[in-house]
Simulated assay, not measured.
Amino acid sequence: MKLTLRLGKRLNRSWQVDAMLMLLLGVFGAFMAIPLIYVINNAFKPLDELFIFPPKLFVRNPTFENFGDLLQVMKGSWVPFSRYIFNTFFITAAGTAGHILLASAAAYPLAKHKFRGHKVLFTIIVLSLMFSPHVTAIPNYMIMSSIGWIDSYKALIIPAFAFPLGLYLMKQFMEQIPDALLEAAKIDGASEYRIFWQIVMPLVKPAWLTLLILMMQMLWGADGGSFIYSEQLKTMHFAMGQIIQGGIARAGAGAAVAVVVMIVPIVTFLLSQSSVIQTMASSGMKD
């Protein structure tokens, strides 16, 4: 089997190599899909199957009783469950939209305007990626307490605006935009705001769609237990966590909870996966 690589020509492979690669990717894909398959099957297992040891991957006698139990638990809550859903959607939507706008607006001058101190500022941003959220939890709480944002939506939404990974991603992607394109727009009389909204943002659409998925995942799974104490302001993830902690009697409802919580992030990823792949494939490219 011979592989030849010529300048300016495509790498030629035999069909045997392609088949081996597809088989290998299929094996790894199936292996990574096992946790997802297991969680989905658990949601339809009766209680006796949930406690079988060793656990079974696929359900034998599927039932919808777990989802019925989940609905009964929701109805028994003294705060309407629709309130938890609204809180989660509002925090996720506001935090994600605000972060994408702020990260994009901050990344543009860092990527395309060489002002004094821009290298130092970018170095600080990169260093901030090294800090785990657990390390900054206490300082964040002290700041939120001092400005009076404890027990409010702002305690979860505003810190999401400053998530450093989004700024780093947008800056690196904007650097790939040819400077000649922006200079041509300036010669035609376009302002910086018009260049940003009508040229830069459409060109970096794969990047901010990727950021959309990352932020939705982070905020959708946030319970806000450290900052929010009022029951009417708590998120769906917090309410679901209380259901899971109900013991053996709620094991079925807890299995249904796992599926309900992961539906939105999975659907969002499926709708944007082509842009995510394009982002990863384009990273590191220069004009």
Score class of each variant (00 low, 15 high):
Lys2Asp: 15
Gly8Glu: 03
Lys9Val: 02
Arg10Met: 05
Arg10Lys: 15
Leu11Ile: 15
Ser14Gln: 08
Asp18Glu: 14
Leu21Lys: 11
Phe28Pro: 07
Ala30His: 06
Met32Gln: 15
Ile34Asn: 12
Pro35Gly: 10
Tyr38Pro: 09
Ile40Asn: 03
Asn42Leu: 09
Asn42Ile: 07
Ala43Gln: 01
Phe44Met: 00
Leu47Asn: 06
Glu49His: 10
Leu50Pro: 03
Leu50Lys: 06
Ile52Ala: 12
Lys56Asn: 11
Arg60Val: 09
Pro62His: 01
Thr63Tyr: 02
Phe64Val: 15
Asn66Gln: 09
Phe67Tyr: 13
Phe67Leu: 03
Gly68Pro: 03
Asp69Thr: 04
Gly76Leu: 02
Ser77Ala: 11
Pro80Thr: 07
Ser82His: 02
Arg83Ser: 12
Tyr84Phe: 12
Asn87Trp: 01
Thr88Tyr: 04
Phe89Ala: 13
Phe90Val: 14
Ala94His: 05
Thr96Tyr: 01
His99Leu: 04
Leu102Ser: 11
Ala106Ser: 07
Ala111Gln: 03
Arg116Val: 03
Phe122Ala: 06
Phe122Ser: 06
Phe122Glu: 10
Val126Glu: 05
Met130Tyr: 07
Met130Ala: 08
His134Ile: 10
Val135Gln: 01
Thr136Met: 11
Ala137Ile: 09
Pro139Ala: 07
Met142His: 04
Met144Gly: 02
Met144Tyr: 01
Trp149Val: 11
Ile150Tyr: 04
Ser152Ile: 09
Tyr153Asn: 07
Leu156Cys: 00
Pro159Cys: 07
Pro159Trp: 07
Pro159Lys: 12
Phe161Trp: 07
Phe163Leu: 10
Gly166Tyr: 09
Glu175Val: 00
Glu175Ala: 02
Asp179Pro: 08
Asp179Arg: 15
Leu182Tyr: 14
Asp188Asn: 13
Ala190Asp: 14
Glu192Gly: 02
Tyr193Ala: 15
Tyr193Asn: 11
Ile195Glu: 12
Phe196Ala: 05
Ile199Leu: 13
Ile199Met: 05
Pro202His: 07
Pro202Asp: 11
Leu203Met: 14
Val204Leu: 04
Pro206Ser: 05
Leu209Met: 14
Leu211Thr: 04
Leu212Met: 12
Ile213Phe: 06
Met215Asp: 01
Gln217Val: 10
Gly221Asp: 15
Ala222Arg: 13
Gly224Lys: 03
Gly224Ile: 09
Gly225Thr: 08
Ser226Lys: 09
Ile228Thr: 00
Ser230Pro: 07
His237Trp: 04
Phe238Lys: 13
Gly241Ile: 10
Gln242Phe: 11
Ile243Thr: 08
Ile244Tyr: 09
Gly246Trp: 00
Ala256Ile: 05
Val257Gln: 00
Met262His: 00
Pro265Ala: 08
Ile266Glu: 08
Val267Leu: 11
Phe269His: 04
Phe269Gln: 01
Ser274Leu: 13
Ser274Tyr: 13
Ile277His: 05
Ile277Thr: 11
Met280Gly: 13
Ala281Met: 06
Ala281Leu: 12
Ser282Glu: 13
